[in-house]
Design a protein around this nucleic acid. Sequence first.
DNA 1: TGGATTTGATAAACCGGTATAGCTCCCGAA
DNA 2: TTCGGGAGCTATACCGGTTTATCAAATCCA
Lengths: 338, 338
Amino acid sequence: MARPTIADIATRAGVSKGAVSFALNGRPGVSDATRERILKIAEQMSWRPHSAARALGASRVDSVGMVIARPARTLGVEPFFAHLLSGVQSGLSAESISLQLLIVEDTAAEIEVYRRWASEHRVDGVILVDLTVKDPRVDELRALELPAVVIGGRGGKGALASVWADDRDAMLAIVEYLAALGHRRIAHVAGTPNFQHTQRRIRAVRDAAPRLGLLDAPSLTTDFSDAEGAAITRKLLSQPNRPTAIVYDSDVMAVAGLGVAMEMGVSVPGELSIVAFDDSILTQLMHPALTALSRDTFDFGRQAAEVLLDTIADPGTVVNRRTADPVLTVRESTAPPG
Amino acid sequence: MARPTIADIATRAGVSKGAVSFALNGRPGVSDATRERILKIAEQMSWRPHSAARALGASRVDSVGMVIARPARTLGVEPFFAHLLSGVQSGLSAESISLQLLIVEDTAAEIEVYRRWASEHRVDGVILVDLTVKDPRVDELRALELPAVVIGGRGGKGALASVWADDRDAMLAIVEYLAALGHRRIAHVAGTPNFQHTQRRIRAVRDAAPRLGLLDAPSLTTDFSDAEGAAITRKLLSQPNRPTAIVYDSDVMAVAGLGVAMEMGVSVPGELSIVAFDDSILTQLMHPALTALSRDTFDFGRQAAEVLLDTIADPGTVVNRRTADPVLTVRESTAPPG
DNA sequence: TGGATTTGATAAACCGGTATAGCTCCCGAA
DNA sequence: TTCGGGAGCTATACCGGTTTATCAAATCCA
């Protein structure tokens, strides 16, 4: 017999299908003796539930979805997503829930995917990343009544559950560290302006500037690409009063910036300190190795999975969980200003 | 009415469930007039099939799986997988098949996943990457009777379908290019020795060496990590007769190698030429930018999806499709030997 | 014109589970 | 002695599709 069903187990155990279902799902309705006997037979026959059948009966599919709306070109370089994915999976595997991953071009396509998933009952919930300022996905998901958890930002006035780290504190830590080294002209090469975390980081820099006595602390937004990171760096370093330190919102841009500095003959960290707001193998491959903010991305994903499963189990409560604070890993790219 | 079922459509159209099913799936059994009427009603009610119900009835789940067995740490840096994934999805989206992605630590875990997927009917087929020399997954998948397609290698004496590029020709192109520049001492920093493509590349170098009059052409295997790439480079450059050109099997190792060369004061490309066997944004971020072999990874994934769907539809035929040949993108890291 | 075949549709079984109503038996309390 | 109630289990409906057996009406062919 190739794939046994609970009916097979039932006949073999001399009980009804219902009893087998009760036994296999650990719910009351059968005696301990019978339960054990059924479990043993199921084990012997190496029975596994048919996911579709279970989904149809229990109206849950034991599967969650995650859509990443970024052009594939910019995606792979950042270990961020790979780590996040691993973490999410580790959080899901305990309950043997599977993950559907989709990479799409933009938010419109992403919302389309959510609609399809909801109407086809393909997922029990979804994980959101890259929350924007006035994010249309939040309302859409609420309308679809699809459980969701937001990674890296609050779910819009308590609408969605979330798992987040304190970007503000992290940025303050970086700026304070640079100020303590003696830097007074610090520039911030930020990501896309419509991302919530970009806004929070920009605000943190602006708020800290007067307190730390910074002469100049511009935040310049980009599209997160290496090209724009390089272009902005070139502009910054060509100014008469050029910054003595630059904070980049991603490791890729930081690396691009380092390249520009070298090309222009600006020594790092002698004449320019560089900090990346995201750590990865990239920062360590460089010469000099880049000082960077390290976040436990794996754990981030793991916790997101946990919160999502809780939300699915009990859609009433909205959890906003704060994760461990990121730490600044000091390497060779930062020093007191020349 | 939130989610209409075919029964709802049936009553509204005044026909039976069966007729609706026939109409919606484009199979004979209803007249064109009725079909059109049913389709229109389904459209109006914005009906979508319930994936689990369809899976249960039709015994296919419209979902395929892909497992990547690599530690997450080494994963994210290479855009290879992100592009591959996008390509696979683009190939699947036409038939609106969804993709399950799983990142695991090793092959044993990967095989476990296949067993579970098969027994729970979670996927209709799988896509394999990183084929090893005596790969246990091939036999396992045949035993499970799970349709599969291998990316980047032949599926073991015609056992599994595959989509592959010619690694041998690609490596020959690189070595011939370097030889034409005048290099006679070329080293090859390879990946893990048990990968099939590593073997093919090593063999290509060895075979080409005498014909091109190379004095020395060692292939040194690594674990694909930046650390080993750097270590081997250091060893190579410390030799009395050090190579004038090094070919790296991945872009990450090439970047690490470049770092070592700079650190040791070996100028690139003046005293050392560097080629990466894989292209990505990384190679372009460097100074000098690295000459690299560019492959159309997106298309690779797209074709793999196509072949897999064909294999699922007709498990009898085994397709081995060869994709477009990779091309060498010459940048600043290669020049005639000093 | 009459029997054979095709067309267009229906009703019901089925896929493999879950959920629930109901039945039997046994125990304890009144 | 009777009755209520819970434990343990069975029978059956159900989830939302697909598939098959069946059947009436229309069409074909000689």
